[in-house]
Simulated assay, not measured.
Amino acid sequence: MTKYSLIFFFIGLISQAQEKPSIQKQEIIRIETELASDKMEGREIFTRGNDSASVFIQNEFKKIHLDYFEGLGGYRQEFTAKGKPANNVIGMIPGKSKPNEFVVFSAHYDHLGMKSNGKDKVYNGANDDASGTTAVIALAKYFKELGQNERTLIFIAFTGEEVGGFGSSYFSNNIEPNQVIAMFNIEMIGTESKWGKNSAYITGYEKSDFGQILQKNLKGSNFNFYEDPYPKEQLFYRSDNARLAYLGVPAHTISTSKMDSEPNYHKLSDEVSTLDLDNMTEIIKSIAISSQTIVNGLDTPTRVE
């Protein structure tokens, strides 16, 4: 190898080292398609399909090399609901300078299961909430590769949301809420919001300055977070963020679901083919960018009263 070849070789290595991680559409498609596939049998809690989804998420966390959550010997956070065994899937990236301050990224991986008969039996739940779970996995990979989080990042896929929020209740009861700086709960981001592409809303926007911080970090982009346009639906209290919000945590749900006109909500037709995967990828990228100052310890959202 000549002297000049060596120079270009090392320049290439330096360039690669300086490249920031990115969130790729093909990865979003891969994860989303697997979670919403028929073989997951609708991911209903206490079923074989739910177990299959859990194993898939655990394997993704393992590939990313997430740490185990405190006190666990793996990625399963096991508990009992309705007298039956169930589990969340949870991993973490320890914070560099503020390891005892937690930022949570979450979604629920359970859905409605299957019908007993008919040509199409599977409630695939592509939007609800394979889309959110896909986002959590993609964000875990992004932040692990970035390696710049000052606060500890917790990535969790809850089970039991569809039947009473069992997974998020167990998690919330087994963590010190004062250590949780913020919770990004991601629910149904696979379709365009009422404002079109490059937008989403935040439930409970007025209850803390969480949303204002996110929007500030997106200055100069074409993405916008809005207040929840469906106040009568009480969405702030209807997803997995609610348990920690009750304890004062600025725990909010990010969504695009048009609750007054979402044609596939809780229907057999909620399949991958109905999603806008380009827009969904951009939403996940925007969550990554907008969360940076909270992740890096520069911003601390106000607590929820």
Results as ranks from 00 to 15, higher is better:
Val136Asp: 10
Gly91Tyr: 00
Gly190Thr: 11
Ala86Asn: 09
Asp240Arg: 00
Glu101Gly: 11
Phe210Gly: 10
Asp276Pro: 14
Thr33Ala: 13
Ala81Asp: 11
Val304Leu: 11
Asp128Gln: 05
Ile57Met: 06
Gly125Asp: 07
Ile294Phe: 06
Glu41Tyr: 07
Pro21His: 00
Asp110Gly: 11
Pro250Met: 00
Lys96Tyr: 02
His266Trp: 06
Ala130His: 03
Ser269Thr: 15
Ser168Met: 00
Asn87Trp: 02
Lys232Thr: 14
Ser221Pro: 12
Asn222Val: 09
Glu271Cys: 07
Ile45Tyr: 01
Phe166Leu: 08
Asn222Met: 06
Ser52Thr: 10
Arg243Met: 09
Asn178Gly: 15
Glu187His: 05
Lys258Ser: 15
Phe56Ala: 07
Tyr142Trp: 04
Tyr226Lys: 07
Lys82Thr: 08
Lys39Val: 08
Gln212Arg: 03
Leu247Tyr: 06
Gly132Asp: 11
Ile213Ser: 09
Gln24Asn: 09
Lys63Ser: 15
Ser37His: 06
Ala53Pro: 13
Glu227Thr: 15
Ser106Asn: 11
Tyr170Asp: 15
Leu235Met: 10
Glu187Ser: 11
Leu298Pro: 12
Ser290Asp: 13
Glu101Ala: 03
Glu27Pro: 14
Tyr201Cys: 12
Pro99Asn: 04
Thr293Tyr: 02
Gly220Val: 03
Ile289Trp: 01
Met259Ala: 07
Thr33Asn: 13
Val103Gln: 04
Ser273Arg: 07
Ile14Cys: 11
Gly248Arg: 02
Glu19Thr: 12
Ile11Met: 09
Glu19Asp: 11
Tyr4Asp: 15
Lys62His: 13
Ser273Thr: 13
Arg303Asn: 14
Gly160Ser: 10
Leu275Gln: 08
Thr302Leu: 05
Gly49Gln: 05
Asn50Gly: 09
Pro231Tyr: 00
Ile29Ser: 09
Lys216Trp: 00
Ser22Ala: 14
Pro177Ile: 05
Tyr170Phe: 14
Leu235Thr: 09
Gln212Asp: 14
Pro85Thr: 08
Phe102Thr: 05
Thr274Met: 06
Ala135Arg: 04
